[in-house]
Design a protein around this nucleic acid. Structure first.
Lengths: 140, 140
DNA sequence: GTAACTGCAAAATATTTGCATCCTT
DNA sequence: AAGGATGCAAATATTTTGCAGTTAC
């Protein structure tokens, strides 16, 4: 895992530091999306708020993570798959936010159907956010 | 227009006040979505920040407007169509945010295709947010 | 050794809450 | 008249910026 995060950071011309490694590992361990506050709480060591802001910002710029749109005013982040690179994110993300446990799932393998836009509109990115009850919470 | 907004407010058991009428009219006049800051700037009279927060909150609760998910941390609001009522919003919203002029369009008439979720997931709401270049900006 | 990263302090912004006053019904 | 809505002040929370010290390469 450690060497994995190292590789990712180096591949993106970022120096390998404690906070970056820890935050990246946190994303890899969590199967869902994380908010800034989650990272502040869950990370093994305690990092400065500001460091977390800046780390997330750099990760988004480099295409290591992406933001997930939400209906409330929160901002969520999740790992990008390989086909995201700097300045060019994968066009099709599907996400599922559970209303019960509040976990956010990345459904990267689910194809997003093409949607016909009115004439003159050129679409470069589509986000799909579904909400409802997730697998775990249905079984309770 | 004035009587229209009155009707909407009364239908939702809200008293008709200056700020509510003005903000509602602002939504009706604008063909796109509005952020809190837009309302603060564009409204004919100047209302207190807090009043705008509270008005928007009430409107969302009553199903008069809905929030639009965005990738950055901003919150956008737009008028709901008739099939939204308190606590039960229309399941399918499609929105288009222009990267150039930053206008947000509500594409309520565009059908959102069904998406197959993994077993166990129950979807109650789907938001689709597309971004790219809008009709107006393409023609320049 | 140098450039880049971090943490602290502080500024700027955004949001929420309490309360007295005013307006709608 | 009564209940609800507004505006002000202030508390809280969130995000950004500057800078000095530290770390990675």
């Amino acid at each position: 895992m450690k060497s994995d995060t190292n590789d990712i950071l180096k591949k993106n011309q970022l120096s390998v530091t404690g906070s970056r490694t820890a935050i990246l590992e946190l994303f890899q361990k969590s199967n869902g999306a994380l908010a800034h506050a989650d990272i502040e709480k869950k990370s093994s060591e305690q990092f400065d708020r500001v460091t977390i802001y800046r780390t997330l910002q750099v990760f988004v710029e480099k295409g290591i993570i992406h933001t997930i749109p939400t209906t409330d005013n929160s901002v969520l982040y999740a790992l990008c798959k390989d086909n995201c690179s700097q300045g060019h994110h994968n066009d099709n993300h599907a996400h599922f936010i559970c209303d019960v446990c509040d976990l956010t799932y990345c459904l990267e393998h689910i194809a997003i159907p093409a949607i016909n836009l009115p004439a003159g509109f050129k679409q470069t990115r589509t986000d799909v956010v579904m909400s409802g009850i997730c697998k775990n919470c249905s079984n309770k």
